[in-house]
């Protein structure tokens, strides 16, 4: 498994196209399309795998075995489920706002997919290396609020409406500590480029320099992807399934799969901002950089799942109280401490 297997493929493709007499602009375009397609396919497959992984993790936490019938070790269970859901009728209740109702599950996959455009899967393996990558991911990820709200509002169901209201309240309040916690890292590095932030962690990972920011980011991230203990949006024991209540078949499946997509985005960002991205720990560079990246992302995802299957759900007022009274002041304090620390650091001139 070579370090440059993927960049090698891209370079090979470019050389081949140049040899075939394709003009540089067109060849660049083709390479870009191939790259993005690869990311989209990879993310979709990964999401299918994550559903299986979640079911297995949940099963072992709950003293069960989990899916073990379809395919070896039940590996094809999600595929079978998706095929089944594809064959299901898409029920459109009579009094829904049809266009918005049908658009929401299609659009829900867009924000996480867009975010993946700038995620570096390994050294030099970002599909697009934006100089404001962090800003872009935050901006794109917060779009999903509107899509959940679309589903909740258009369903014309009170449970969906309550769920939609909760989405907006929750995401807006947790977006704030999410962004503020990343500010500490950005202050330390002085850049918004993802590649540069990862390279700045060659000495120490930012989880050690900014432990509080990591904690805040992680908690706010759990809330952003609506997972237990912050899964009030679905809150199946209270409001059935929140915005998804009226959806059936693939419409419902899209919401579910998008949740795993968002979870990957949050885990990737955690890895990039705090866990050193693709950098190998202890100088163990015998494994390629993209391999390290995946180990870290999956460790984060496992923690997400672990929490989900251990904790109960908090109440809506406690959620808001925790967000505004604890996380926001803490993240502001973190920025203050980071600033003072940097000033002293420079003044002493270590």
């Amino acid at each position: 498994m070579g370090e440059n297997i993927f960049t090698g493929i891209a370079a090979g493709l470019r050389t081949y196209l140049a040899g075939a007499g394709v003009p540089p602009l067109a060849s660049e375009f083709i390479v870009m399309v191939v790259k993005l397609l690869a990311v989209i396919i990879f993310v979709s497959l990964n999401v299918v795998w994550l559903v299986y992984m979640e079911r297995k993790v949940a099963a072992y936490i709950q003293c069960r075995i989990g899916p073990n019938r379809v395919g070896p070790k039940g590996l094809l269970q999600t595929v079978a489920d998706v095929v089944k859901l594809l064959a299901k009728e898409i029920i459109i209740p009579r009094r829904v706002d049809k266009i918005v109702y049908l658009a929401a599950p299609v659009l829900v996959f867009v924000p996480p997919m867009m975010a993946f455009a700038v995620i570096p899967w390994g050294e030099g393996m970002a599909p697009i290396d934006l100089n404001i990558g962090v800003f872009y991911v935050l901006a794109v990820a917060s779009l999903s609020t509107i899509i959940f709200w679309m589903g909740g509002w258009s369903s014309n169901n009170k449970y969906s409406l309550v769920g939609g209201m909760r989405v907006v309240a929750q995401m807006v309040s947790y977006e704030l500590p999410l962004v503020l916690s990343l500010l500490g890292v950005i202050m330390l590095t002085g850049t918004l480029s993802i590649t540069e932030i990862v390279n700045a962690q060659r000495g120490t990972w930012f989880i050690f320099a900014q432990p509080l920011a990591f904690l805040i980011y992680f908690i706010a991230g759990v809330s952003e992807v609506n997972r237990t203990p912050f899964d009030l949006v679905e809150g199946e024991s209270e409001i059935i399934a929140g915005p998804y209540t009226e959806y059936s078949g693939m419409g419902y499946a899209m919401y579910m799969l998008a949740e795993y997509g968002s979870m990957m985005v949050i885990s990737c960002m955690c890895t990039i901002m705090f866990l050193g991205g693709w950098l190998a720990p202890f100088g163990w560079t015998f494994l390629p950089s993209w391999f390290w990246f995946f180990i870290k992302v999956y460790a984060m995802i496992f923690i997400f799942m672990w929490i989900r299957w251990t904790y109960p759900r908090i109440r809506v007022d406690q959620l808001m109280g925790f967000g505004w009274k604890v996380l926001v002041p803490l993240s502001l304090a973190n920025i203050f401490v980071t600033g003072v620390g940097m000033y002293i650091y420079r003044a002493i001139g270590w």
Binding site: A58, Q62, R64, T228, T310
Partner: peptide, 16 residues
């Protein structure tokens, strides 16, 4: 009751 509060795992422990 554990499920009502949102934690599914407690349910399976009790049922086991």
């Amino acid at each position: 009751y554990s499920v009502d509060i949102g934690g599914f795992t407690g349910f399976l422990y009790c049922f086991r």
